[in-house]
Amino acid sequence: MQKTALVPYAHLPRAHHAHHVLTSTVDVFGTAHWLLADRAPQPGGDALPFDALVVSVHPGGEVELTELSAVRARWPHLDRLPDGGFVVAASRARRYEDADQVQVLNALGREASSFSVGDAIEHLLVDEAGHIWVGHFDENPVGYADFPLVEIRPDRPVRVWPNQVRGAKAVAIHGERVAFYGGYAEEVDRLTRGELTEASVEPTDGGLLTLPDGHLPGRRRAVSRGSRIYVQAEPFTAWGVVDLSS
């Protein structure tokens, strides 16, 4: 089976490896972020809110630190806003009956606003304009369907392509080329490439996406950004990338 190896992209500086990685992402501008705490959260046992640290590694290698105050999400999602602030969201909403589930923090790490978007967040992304996009996993009944590829732009009608690739966790687009990463059960490491036609997504080839050393990732995170899919494997201190444009 064809194998595609991730290219090393960003690493958490070793000085911060003693902290626990709550979550990590790569933003729309290519900067990698790690949300760190002194220790791992304990279900039902930790006091909320708590203070946390974001370590940001820019594409040129510059490291930036931001202290966040009064974070409420025990199992958070994270992304950065274009103004230097951050969005932190709790994946589950049921425990936030008296407090909003999504926190918007300014560049100083202090809460500026908050709101809720419904239970079962699986994906949270901020785009170049600062719009926040949220995807839910299938415990949330809002709009869950099969697996079409959908294009949503402010200046044109929504486009939908029927798609045969099921259960992908990330998607990359470059022109008419598309790639899907992940799937169910034994297809968790699958990388499927395809072409966009007027009527559908047509798969062209498939294989496995591996770590740079050729091993399969095991537990991992994946983030989609345009033509790129970023993947991070346990212990979640390094990001690799596959880029359709290269």
Rank of each mutant, 00 (worst) to 15 (best):
D138T: 07
A107W: 13
A168I: 08
G194P: 01
I229L: 03
H174I: 09
G85M: 08
N140G: 09
W133D: 02
V104E: 03
A18G: 14
L65P: 09
G45H: 10
A168K: 06
E176G: 13
L35N: 05
R156Q: 11
D46F: 03
H20E: 06
E67N: 13
L81W: 00
G135C: 09
A170T: 05
E62K: 15
F50I: 04
H136N: 05
Y144Q: 12
M1G: 10
A18C: 12
H131R: 14
F236N: 02
G214V: 08
A5W: 09
G44E: 04
L191M: 11
G207P: 02
Y96A: 04
S200A: 14
G194N: 00
A170Q: 05
G135F: 05
D213S: 12
Q164S: 15
Q101S: 01
L149V: 06
L22I: 05
P203N: 01
R14Y: 06
L48D: 00
L124A: 05
H136D: 00
V63L: 08
P141L: 09
D27G: 00
N140Q: 12
D51I: 04
R92Q: 11
A129N: 15
M1T: 09
V7H: 13
R193I: 04
E202M: 06
R225S: 07
S200N: 11
G109F: 04
V54M: 01
A112K: 12
V55K: 04
A172Y: 09
I173R: 10
D243T: 06
P148V: 06
A18P: 12
G214R: 10
V21T: 05
G207K: 04
V28L: 07
F86I: 12
V55A: 03
R110N: 09
P13V: 09
E234P: 10
Y230F: 13
P41E: 03
F29T: 15
W133L: 04
P235C: 06
H19T: 11
T204W: 04
S224R: 05
D213W: 14
A120K: 10
A18L: 12
H77V: 06
Q101F: 02
R95K: 07
V160R: 15
G84Y: 15
R159K: 10
A99P: 06
R94Q: 13
G118N: 05
Q232P: 02
A40N: 12
T31S: 15
A70N: 06
S246K: 14
G182Y: 10
E176L: 11
A70L: 08
L216Y: 15
G118K: 04
V134C: 06
G226T: 08
V241D: 00
V171E: 06
A112C: 11
V188F: 03
H19M: 14
W239A: 00
P82A: 04
H33K: 15
V242R: 07
E176D: 14
H58K: 15
G85F: 08
Q164G: 15
A52H: 07
P13C: 08
T31M: 08
V188N: 02
D205N: 11
A145R: 11
G143Y: 15
G214I: 07
N163F: 01
F236P: 01
G143T: 14
R220C: 07
